[in-house]
Nucleic acid binder design. Structure first.
Length: 501
RNA sequence: CGGGGAGUGGCGCAGCCUGGUUAGCGCGCUUGCCUUGGGAGCAAGAGGUCGUCGGUUCAAAUCCGACCUCCCCGACCA
């Protein structure tokens, strides 16, 4: 319902003490979540101008606002990767077919989704070139060249790149033919070091995703079925989206010596013995933007966690009378003042929209805090702050506004995380019998913590019956004893089942 | 890749079944006036290879065929 159809203009909210109710929907472009979650997601992606479709199937255009979120996330993670001793480098987009084929499991796993270049200019290539679906096969040959002695280890390299996987079904950010990511590739002298690195990165991912994206995750080990092609072990962080489906938010692989052997990465150790290196690889992708949307968004649209928000505060001047003379200058100096305080903010000085329209517009885009400034505020030396997450309204004095705002942004960040944690916890259930499992997956999907015997047969059978898979074997879950939810045999651990994206 | 749905100004749609002047409507956009504290109002405008290619026909948005793209549901994956 639009404001107009609701019966005309409201009285100035200046005198209104109560908050606008949360379920009041000012944003009408977006399909309500409950009506059709998929449609809601796509509406948010397009209406908040995060991404748009291009002309190539499965390839999206990441628009400035969406890219801005990715950019912030990228920078925050990049800092952590560097602080933990890794360096960035860049390897080629093309992988010779012969290189891709070297690790048997790897090529088998990726074959169905590799795009190939077979022609350059007008000439057929002698050897087809794969467009990287991941870069192990182009990086490992270089590592083989660079590693001679144990003194050359460890190699700790990360790259930010695009990769291509020929997907059959695509969705913006969640699964696209081309996507952006970071991929770390390391080589170590011992199995222990490689394992430590794998888990160290997993913890960095967890801390990063929870702290900066405000998305709670569960760390754990992947089952064989879900393991990266060519890995010894795959670990992941799994998040629960608000439709009850799980999203893999990051993976860290212990590659053992598989790739070292396939690509001949060898070194001479302290005892003058030739040894194969132990390698790892790990990555997170633009899928994280999809996770942000589906974790925090509501029926009014996106909510961007302040730490990664391209715009943290939107300043909306209240236009009344000759507002360009009376209000705008104050709004401009306010903008400067907040910018100087390190707050990412923007002044919406468009003169062809009413304040109310702008409120709804920026809500849809998920800007965490709105700052209204009008004639009465100027008179009282204050502004009106409204939080996006709960629409709470506060009248705040100009004096000391910067610190109030900074604090408020942190409050929003915390509140988003807490709310997401509550949702995750509320939708994580211990289930011990299969009929209940089936019923739960059907009626109220989420994480189901169940005992599992460890057999791939049970895992597959559960998937066939319910479409749910084991997302992760959570760390520390093996202390509890029980019997497999499917076959009833003795369980190795409780595991986390869910329908996955 | 299987099953289903859709493609018509920027967005959302009608028109198609039953071919026939200038392809409509709402929102948005432009200009002006007037407004502006939760998506204002009035007036005047601009904007279309009807997804693409081919076929049938005197005539195609409309009928036929192929292809492309998007969406939903499944099988495969960050």
């Amino acid at each position: 319902m639009t404001l107009a159809s609701a019966g005309g203009r409201l009285m100035p909210s200046y005198v209104v003490k109560e908050n606008v109710s949360l379920d009041k929907r000012w944003v009408s472009e977006i399909t309500p979540k409950a009506e059709d979650f998929s449609k809601w997601y796509l509406d948010v992606v397009r209406k908040a101008e995060l991404a748009d479709y291009g002309s190539v199937k499965g390839c999206m255009i990441i628009r400035p606002y969406g890219y801005g979120i990715w950019e912030r996330a990228r920078d925050l993670l990049d800092r952590r990767i560097k602080d933990s001793g890794h360096e960035n480098a860049y390897f080629p987009l093309f992988i010779p077919e012969s290189a891709l084929k070297k690790e048997a499991e790897h090529v088998k796993g990726f074959a169905p989704e590799v795009a190939w270049v077979t022609r350059g200019g007008n000439e057929e290539l002698e050897e087809p070139l794969a467009i990287r679906p991941t870069s192990e096969a182009i990086i490992c040959p270089m590592y083989a060249k660079w590693v001679r002695s144990y003194r050359d280890l460890p190699i700790l390299i990360n790259q930010w790149a695009n990769v291509v996987r020929w997907e059959k079904v695509t969705r913006p950010f969640l699964r696209t033919t081309e996507f952006l990511w970071q991929e770390g590739h390391t080589v170590h002298a011992t199995a222990e070091e490689a394992q430590d690195e794998t888990l160290r990165i997993l913890e960095i991912y967890r801390e990063f995703v929870e702290t900066e994206l405000a998305i709670p995750v569960v760390k754990g080990l992947k089952t064989e079925r879900e393991r990266f092609a060519g890995a010894l072990q795959t670990y992941a962080i799994e998040a629960l989206m608000t439709d009850g489906r799980a999203l893999q938010a990051g993976t860290s692989h212990n590659l053992g010596q598989h790739f070292a052997k396939a690509f001949d990465i060898r070194f001479e150790d302290e005892n003058q013995q030739m040894q194969y290196g132990w390698s790892t690889s790990w990555g997170v992708s633009t899928r994280l933007v999809g996770a942000i949307i589906m974790t925090h968004g509501d029926d009014s649209g996106l909510i961007v966690p302040p730490h990664v928000a391209p715009i943290q505060v939107i300043i909306v001047p209240i236009s009344a009378g000759n507002w360009k003379e009376t209000v705008l200058p104050h709004a401009r100096s306010l903008l400067e003042k907040l910018r100087a305080a390190g707050i990412r903010c923007k002044l919406d000085d468009r003169d062809n929209y009413t304040p109310g329209w702008k409120f709804a517009d920026w809500e849809m885009r998920g800007v965490p805090v709105r700052c209204e400034i009008g004639p009465k505020d100027i008179e009282k030396k204050q502004v009106v702050l409204v939080r996006r997450d709960n629409r709470e309204k506060a009248f705040v004095p100009m004096e000391g506004l910067e610190s109030r705002l900074t604090a408020m942004l942190e409050q929003v960040q915390d509140a988003l995380f807490r709310k997401a944690c509550e949702f995750r916890d509320k939708n994580t259930t211990n289930v011990d019998t299969f009929p209940v499992f089936e019923e739960m997956m059907e009626s109220r999907p989420g994480f189901l913590r169940c005992f599992w015997c460890g057999s791939a047969e049970c895992e597959t059978a559960v998937k066939e019956k319910t479409s749910a898979t084991i997302r992760v074997i959570p760390f520390g879950a093996d202390e509890e004893k029980g019997t497999c939810v499917f076959c009833g045999k003795e369980a190795i651990s409780r595991v986390l089942f869910a329908k996955a994206y």
